[in-house]
Amino acid sequence: MSSNKLKVEDLSAWFYEKQVLNRVSLEFPDKKVIAIIGPSGCGKTTFIRCLNRMHELTPGARVRGRVVLDGKDIYTEMDAMEVRRKIGMVFQKPNPFPNMSIYDNVVAGLKLMGIRDKALLDKVVESKLREVGLWDEVSDDLRRSGAQLSGGQQQRLCIARALATEPEVLLMDEPTSSLDPSSTAKIESLVRVLKNHATVIIITHNVQQAARVSDYTAFLYLGDLIEFGETKKIFESPKNPLTEKYVTGRFG
């Protein structure tokens, strides 16, 4: 299946003895937005952290199964850092580097990997900041510290930073959970644009948000993938009673 960018086969994950993901298999289509939903503690975050090999950094973490990016197993055929450059990530809390300017934050991934070409860096900064809709707000002073921006601006800066290395997949872990409604709306419309360049996998605890932004939705519960399908289908007529209970807000 050439249209599937990222394939997860039989993926299980543990923290010490506790299993948090149970043989999840899933194929992410290319250039689509996929929402991962489920109650807290269902393994959403662990799941996407397995997709860019961040899970293995946690003490006691273990993974079994395969994650295949364009035909290559990211665990056996790729180096962890190469994986993370191809599969970018945006976090729950905006985390710009506080010691760097807005400019340096955007190109941190390039500059710190030794790219010094000023003209190229300038171009990347402008194009990525434009892409996340931050250019007009910050272009007057790119030397300002990224930490001085508002929460919503910081999160868009972090998205620009993740995009600067041109990832093919972008993981977003509840990217709007700490933001106000208008910043949330901006990020959501940004997500819909991002899929022109990359496969976007977004965790959200807000089912309405999943319905608004995604093309496909996966529902995880207690480490199991309960249901995966087109978002319209999942939200109109889910097959599994657990999904039904979750999306209608009748869970626990």
Partner: peptide, 9 residues
């Protein structure tokens, strides 16, 4: 409510 699934139906 912005309902989903059976509620929406």
């Amino acid at each position: 409510i912005q309902p989903f699934a059976s509620d929406l139906r």
